[in-house]
Amino acid sequence: MNRLTLLSAVCLAFVSPTVAQEDAKPKPQEPTIKAIQGTPEIDGKVDEAWKKAPRVNVNKPVEGLLAVDEDEMATATVRVLWDKDHLYALWQVKDSNLSADASDSWAQDSVEFFLDENQKRTTYYESDDAQYRVNYKGELSGQVAGFDESNLKAAARKTKTGYVVEMAIKIQGEPLTAGRKLGVELQVNDDPGSGERGAVAKWNHTDDDSWQDTSNFGTLVLQPAAE
Results as ranks from 00 to 15, higher is better:
residue 105 S to Q: 10
residue 196 E to A: 15
residue 14 F to M: 07
residue 32 T to D: 06
residue 77 T to E: 11
residue 59 N to Q: 04
residue 142 G to Y: 07
residue 12 L to N: 02
residue 114 F to P: 01
residue 161 T to Y: 05
residue 15 V to M: 08
residue 207 D to P: 00
residue 118 N to F: 10
residue 143 Q to H: 14
residue 167 M to Y: 08
residue 70 E to C: 00
residue 21 Q to E: 04
residue 124 Y to L: 12
residue 197 R to T: 01
residue 34 K to A: 11
residue 28 P to K: 01
residue 142 G to A: 13
residue 65 L to K: 11
residue 226 A to D: 08
residue 6 L to K: 10
residue 116 D to H: 08
residue 55 R to S: 15
residue 39 T to R: 10
residue 121 R to C: 07
residue 97 N to Q: 12
residue 192 P to Q: 08
residue 15 V to W: 14
residue 178 A to P: 10
residue 152 L to A: 05
residue 108 Q to T: 09
residue 36 I to S: 06
residue 61 P to M: 00
residue 47 D to P: 03
residue 218 G to A: 14
residue 131 Q to G: 12
residue 64 G to M: 03
residue 121 R to I: 03
residue 72 E to S: 11
residue 168 A to R: 15
residue 57 N to C: 03
residue 24 A to G: 02
residue 9 A to N: 03
residue 154 A to Y: 09
residue 32 T to F: 04
residue 150 S to R: 12
residue 200 V to N: 00
residue 198 G to C: 05
residue 120 K to G: 15
residue 3 R to P: 01
residue 80 V to M: 06
residue 151 N to Y: 12
residue 64 G to E: 08
residue 149 E to H: 05
residue 124 Y to E: 15
residue 194 S to R: 11
residue 137 K to I: 02
residue 99 S to E: 03
residue 156 A to V: 10
residue 156 A to Y: 13
residue 13 A to C: 13
residue 62 V to N: 00
residue 100 A to Y: 03
residue 119 Q to P: 01
residue 202 K to E: 01
residue 158 K to C: 08
residue 35 A to I: 13
residue 142 G to I: 04
residue 159 T to R: 10
residue 86 H to I: 02
residue 200 V to I: 12
residue 57 N to H: 09
residue 214 T to L: 06
residue 163 Y to H: 06
residue 16 S to P: 03
residue 218 G to W: 07
residue 126 E to W: 06
residue 190 D to M: 01
residue 30 E to L: 09
residue 162 G to V: 12
residue 15 V to F: 14
residue 11 C to R: 00
residue 7 L to H: 00
residue 68 V to D: 01
residue 182 L to C: 12
residue 94 K to W: 05
residue 191 D to K: 14
residue 76 A to Y: 00
residue 169 I to H: 09
residue 101 D to G: 07
residue 95 D to H: 11
residue 204 N to C: 03
residue 106 W to Q: 14
residue 224 P to G: 10
residue 55 R to G: 07
residue 49 A to R: 04
residue 23 D to T: 03
residue 213 D to I: 05
residue 207 D to W: 02
residue 138 G to M: 04
residue 16 S to K: 01
residue 140 L to T: 11
residue 22 E to T: 04
residue 19 V to W: 08
residue 131 Q to W: 10
residue 170 K to Q: 15
residue 185 E to S: 10
residue 60 K to H: 01
residue 151 N to I: 03
residue 64 G to K: 08
residue 193 G to S: 09
residue 170 K to W: 02
residue 102 A to M: 06
residue 38 G to E: 05
residue 11 C to Q: 06
residue 183 G to L: 12
residue 169 I to P: 08
residue 173 G to I: 13
residue 145 A to S: 15
residue 14 F to D: 04
residue 44 G to T: 08
residue 52 K to L: 11
residue 33 I to D: 06
residue 86 H to A: 02
residue 161 T to K: 13
residue 28 P to H: 02
residue 122 T to C: 06
residue 95 D to V: 05
residue 113 F to A: 12
residue 17 P to I: 07
residue 218 G to I: 06
residue 137 K to H: 10
residue 216 N to S: 13
residue 129 D to Q: 04
residue 25 K to Q: 13
residue 42 I to A: 02
residue 198 G to K: 05
residue 131 Q to Y: 06
residue 193 G to E: 04
residue 134 V to Y: 09
residue 20 A to K: 00
residue 172 Q to F: 04
residue 10 V to S: 03
residue 34 K to F: 13
residue 58 V to S: 01
residue 124 Y to T: 15
